[in-house]
């Protein structure tokens, strides 16, 4: 018996000794199903209110928030980058060409070259889902979002959120994530921050210090 399997057996036996007779998987599943989940799953806002609510929450985190119609994504991104003084961004594969304004340099990165990403001026990604109540965007390893390193190492992150991706509550977001729970997933709520010094929320430690969110109106277009 190896050392580890010896410890495994010891721990499981000790747990069993404390808990008494085990139950079957079916009994455990039945007990799990009885857990009272009386908390809110869905919000009551209409679509426009929801988008406004999301914007407010993002602004409280000191993120920049912009809006664009479907046919004006590239021009809005151009305006945002000009305002930020950026010349170009890195991005994952899967970003639609129609989003990219001329006169800026967009470099697609498909590997995890940390030093190269570190030298970039920033990154642009999409997202999987966004949560209005908490001002969160959820990124996964998927086309248009890329590996986790990409949205982490640069100092600036521009995230494009389609209005249809915004949900009201945290549980509603988990409904949408149910099929992809095994993917590397990051919930981002505002720029990186710390409250470790005298409990003051200070923007910007290791993650991107600057976050802009572009909300694209894709409803009934």
């Amino acid at each position: 018996m190896t050392e580890t399997s010896h410890h495994r057996a010891t721990i499981l036996a000790s747990i069993r000794l404390s808990l008494g007779t085990p139950q079957t998987a079916d009994q455990i599943a039945a007990e799990y199903a009885t857990i009272k989940r009386t908390y809110r799953r869905y919000g009551t806002m209409n679509h426009d209110e929801l988008v406004d609510f999301f914007e407010d929450r993002l602004r409280e985190y000191d993120a920049g928030v912009y809006r664009a119609e479907l046919n004006a994504i590239a021009s809005t991104i151009s305006a945002i980058l000009t305002k930020r003084g950026k010349h170009g961004l890195v991005m994952p594969s899967g970003i639609p060409k129609s989003w990219l304004p001329q006169a800026f340099d967009f470099e697609q990165i498909d590997d995890e070259d940390a030093y190269r990403i570190d030298r970039s001026e920033g990154v642009m990604t999409g997202c999987t889902v966004a949560i209005a109540e908490t001002g969160s965007i959820v990124l996964q390893n998927a086309p248009g979002q890329g590996p986790r390193i990409l949205s982490l190492v640069p100092d600036y992150h521009l995230c494009v959120v389609r209005a249809g991706q915004i949900v009201s509550q945290v549980p509603e977001a988990f409904d949408r994530l149910a099929g992809s729970s095994s993917l590397p997933t990051t919930f981002v709520s505002g720029p990186s921050a710390t409250a470790d010094i005298e409990m003051t929320r200070i923007k910007g430690v290791h993650g991107p210090r600057f976050l802009d969110v572009l909300i694209v109106n894709d409803a009934t277009a």
Partner: peptide, 21 residues
Amino acid sequence: ATGERMNPYNSTWCGVHPGDG
């Protein structure tokens, strides 16, 4: 924990994902 609606980052991952981490 910190009196925030959501802390800046939550990460979930399973084992090893090729090309990510």
